[in-house]
Design a protein around this nucleic acid. Structure first.
Lengths: 220, 220
DNA sequence: TTCTTGTCACCTAGGTGTTAATAT
DNA sequence: ATATTAACACCTAGGTGACAAGAA
């Protein structure tokens, strides 16, 4: 009962081998991890959270000549893993289900000493994002948090953490699909990945669409 | 146990006769209504909210020759009054008390048909903002919301709703103290209301100060 | 070599009062 | 006359990859 938003875009990145930038100050993910939930108890309260688990115990390096990732040794030591709690938590099932849930406040960092609550990852390592729905039992109940949570894994959201993009095709797809990178687009406005980008923007607009849409009459 | 933030700035506006812009799309207040709370039960849950009550039953008009507000008749009919719930609600007393509570998402409108949940006011009328702390009883308790809320009124936050500023001194004070109006400042950077503005910015920074402050060395 | 860091121009997104045009 | 609206230039605030310099 959790559906990944923007799945076509995730798939396109996944096919190329998704990379996510990590910086000292913290960098958002793109695509943003967004899900739609259903089947919750409308009246019950839930906490929503994400964490990131290593895909394997390896360190990678990008071979430019073959345009592919190759193993470069054992994994570096890991920091105590962090969990990102969705800032709207806790909220009722009804509130979570009536809109797309976006983790756009989540940031990735390679700073082991990070003091901002960001997710700490090792560059040149592979990670799998996980999404957790935690049921909050009423206070009078004795139940511990035994089986009161569900975990969702979308394998198409796995990625390699990098400090700079390695695969040039990933760079181009980011530029083509991330609105904030519009300044680096070469071709005519909205070219190349038009379909995916338009789909994305439409979905994001639906999410925030509370104000009356203003129909602008194009002047002749 | 509620302290108004930026009180010196509010006082300065109040002395001149505070005006707040209302627009069809909704306009934020400036100064922003911000309070600090103490004395709550750290573990209990509270909803925080604001509403706006008419100061009197009159309509006003600004007499430019005497630079003062004069009564212009009886009040216009009122829309059903709306309440703005702080978007972080509900939250525990502990969460509310550990930081300044800012109502910067609150917007004022003169559109009687507003569909965005903004506060509807009549232009050229006077209003008194009110702040409410609502105690949320645990679900097993039978208590109704009888006396489970407290209301705070800061008379220095009262204002006249306008569609365009009437008192030129109010305009100048807004330009001097609102960072978003910096483009209209004449004099040298940070002149005139330096003290108040600096105080404001320092307080707002304290509130969000989680990242390590980066000391920039000014170059010679 | 390979990877990381900091700065930058260029965007998105949205909050200001001004101004001219339009209601009322 | 007086009050309202919409477009606008100019800001704040912050998210992009490019690039040059630095580090391992």
């Amino acid at each position: 009962n959790a559906i990944l938003e923007m799945k076509p875009l995730w798939d396109e990145f996944h096919t190329l081998g998704t990379e996510m930038i990590v910086t000292k100050a913290g960098r958002r993910m793109f695509p943003t991890f967004q899900v739609r939930l259903c089947g919750l108890d409308p009246m019950a309260e839930y906490m929503l959270m994400m964490d990131f688990v290593p895909v394997d115990d390896k360190r990678y390096r990008y071979a430019f000549h073959s345009s592919s990732w190759v193993v470069a040794g054992k994994a570096d030591p890991v920091s105590p893993p962090r969990i990102h709690v969705h800032p709207d938590s806790p909220a009722t099932g009804s509130q979570w289900m009536k809109q797309v849930i976006s983790f756009d406040k989540l940031k990735l960092t390679n700073n082991q000493m990070d003091d901002n609550g960001h997710i700490i990852l090792n560059s040149m390592h592979r990670y799998q994002p996980r999404f957790h729905v935690v049921f909050l039992p009423p206070k009078n109940c004795q139940e511990e948090t035994d089986n009161n949570f569900k975990t969702f894994v979308f394998t198409e959201t796995a990625f390699t953490a990098v400090t700079a993009y390695q695969n040039h095709r990933i760079t181009q797809l980011k530029i083509a699909s991330n609105p904030f990178a519009k300044g680096f687009r070469d071709c005519d406005p909205d070219d190349g990945d038009v379909n995916l980008v338009q789909q994305q923007q439409q979905q994001q607009q639906q999410q925030h669409q509370q104000s009356s849409p203003k129909a602008k009459t194009p002047r002749t």
